[in-house]
C-alpha cells in the first residue's frame, strides 16, 4: 500500500544513538549549577528527545495532518493547564515556612507587589 512509509534501519539506529547521547548530556548538564536555568536546559533536551521519538519512532513525520493536529493539540491544552496553574501561583501569597513558624497565613489579601517575600 503506497500510503505507508517504511523507514530505513539506519535511520532508526541513528535516532537511537542521538537519544542515548542526549540522555548523557542530560546527566552531564544536571551536574553543573546553572541556577534556575537547569530546569530550562533539562526540559529543552527532553523536548528534543521527545520530538525525535514522535517524529521518527512514532512516524508522526509521515502521518496524516489530522493525526498530527490531534496529538500535538494535547500539548496545546496541557500548556493551558500550566499557564493557569502558574498564573494562580504567581498571584497568591503562601507561607511555605509553616512547619517552622506554625503561623497562620494572613487572612487579609495583599497585593503581590506589597509582599516582601513570598
Amino acid at each position: 500500500m503506497g500510503h505507508h512509509h517504511v523507514s530505513s534501519s539506519a535511520m532508526f539506529f541513528n535516532v537511537l544513538v542521538a537519544l542515548l547521547i542526549l540522555t548523557g548530556i542530560t546527566v552531564g548538564t544536571s551536574r553543573i549549577d546553572f541556577g534556575a536555568a537547569n530546569m530550562m536546559i533539562a526540559m529543552a533536551i527532553a523536548s528534543v528527545k521527545a520530538s525525535l521519538v514522535m517524529a521518527f519512532f512514532m512516524h508522526l513525520k509521515w502521518d496524516t495532518a489530522i493525526n498530527k493536529i490531534i496529538f500535538l493539540s494535547s500539548f496545546l491544552f496541557l500548556s493551558l493547564l500550566f499557564i493557569f496553574t502558574f498564573a494562580d501561583h504567581a498571584t497568591r501569597r503562601m507561607d511555605t515556612q509553616w512547619h517552622v513558624t506554625k503561623a497562620p497565613v494572613d487572612k487579609q489579601w495583599v497585593h503581590p507587589s506589597q509582599l516582601v517575600g513570598k
Partner: peptide, 19 residues
Amino acid sequence: WHLVDLIWIFLFPLLYLVP
C-alpha cells in the same frame, strides 16, 4: 510503547536529577 518512552524521557530528569 513509544508513548511509554515519551513520558519517561520527561520523568527521568525531573525525578532523578531534580533541576
